[in-house]
Amino acid sequence: MARPRNQTARREQLVHAATEAVGRRGLAQLRVADIAEVAGVARGSVNYYFSDLGDLLRQVYRQAADRFYTSRTDTASRLPDARDKLVACARLGLPAGPDDELALVLYEFSAAARDESEYATLAQSLYDRQVAMYGSILEIGRAQGHFRFTEPIPDVAANLVTLEDGYGLHIVGRNSSLPPERALALILASARQATNCPDLRPDRVVPEPESTGPDAAAQHTPEGTA
């Protein structure tokens, strides 16, 4: 891994290395030495740029949360039609594949939430924000005349987020019966029923999100849905 020339770049390099290390070893077994090895630096460099391992891991989680919340809301904000907003967000809410590092990070933190109250708080916050994101899209769709509901919008939004989480776990678990494109189709089938809108289909043409790095396109587009 090339050595960055400034402190911001070095911190970003270490966050990326920590993300990769979590995917390799899992959160429970992770050591500072593992991150240093991936980054190609001395262990002391990690301790220099981050006060402790927890500080670094919070940055890792923030990066993953930005991918699955901030990036999605930014994409939705550029789409005037609520149907496009919902399809785009459902597409971007799934792991790109079993080796999707940022998705793996979120599942590792969720698994650790049982024993770490801080991780539980982070996971709940992300869940609540994603439910609110979908709730806003559903409200817009109703106002535009596209969506009609027989159940409360918060319940529909919560189901969409929970479906993403469940299907995503199968994807990163290498379940060959449930690749990303199949998971997307199933989520949208549920959305069609909940909204009484037949237009929520994977083949709706929507813009891709703005790139946030060299690997952004690969990370944001589930296989088979480009």
Rank of each mutant, 00 (worst) to 15 (best):
R72G: 02
G173C: 08
D55R: 11
R192C: 08
Q7T: 14
L94C: 04
T221M: 15
P152N: 09
A82D: 06
R58N: 13
N159R: 15
S190L: 07
L56Y: 05
G224F: 08
R5M: 11
R67I: 00
A96Y: 02
P222V: 06
R78P: 01
D100F: 03
V131L: 04
S176F: 09
E223Y: 13
F149E: 00
V22G: 02
E37F: 12
R201A: 10
G97E: 05
E116S: 13
G168S: 05
N196D: 15
I140F: 00
A111P: 00
D34R: 04
T8V: 13
P202L: 08
D100E: 13
Q124E: 15
L163C: 04
M133K: 07
V87K: 05
P198Q: 09
A18L: 00
V22A: 05
M133D: 11
D52G: 08
E118I: 10
A143K: 14
A157I: 03
G141Q: 02
R43W: 07
D52M: 08
G224Q: 13
L57C: 04
P152G: 06
D215H: 15
R192W: 03
A65F: 02
Q29H: 15
P180Y: 04
S71C: 06
E139K: 09
R58I: 03
F109H: 05
A64D: 08
G40Q: 10
M1K: 13
L14G: 02
K85G: 02
V131Y: 04
R148N: 10
D84S: 07
Q193F: 14
G23F: 03
I35L: 10
G54K: 09
I35F: 07
R192M: 13
L200W: 00
S136E: 14
F50D: 01
P154A: 05
V38Y: 11
P198E: 05
R148P: 07
Q144V: 01
L126V: 02
T19Q: 10
N6G: 13
A76Y: 04
E139P: 00
D74Y: 04
L138R: 03
A39H: 12
Q59N: 14
A42Y: 14
P80G: 09
S45R: 12
Q29Y: 03
V172D: 05
G173V: 07
I187C: 06
Q130R: 15
L178V: 14
L102H: 12
G135M: 02
R91Q: 08
A216S: 15
P80V: 14
Y49N: 00
L122S: 04
L188Y: 00
R25P: 02
R129Q: 11
A21M: 06
P80Y: 03
L184I: 07
N47F: 11
V15A: 03
Q193P: 03
A218P: 11
R67E: 14
P179D: 10
V156C: 08
L79K: 10
Q29A: 15
Q59H: 15
Q13T: 13
R142F: 05
F50G: 01
D99F: 13
E20H: 15
E151F: 12
E116H: 15
E118R: 14
A113E: 10
Q59A: 14
I137Q: 07
R31T: 04
L160P: 00
H170E: 09
H16G: 12
G141W: 01
G168L: 01
G168F: 00
S190Q: 12
G166A: 10
L92P: 03
R62K: 12
R91G: 01
Y69K: 10
P214R: 15
Y134I: 02
R24M: 12
A76F: 03
R67A: 07
M133T: 09
R174C: 10
R25L: 07
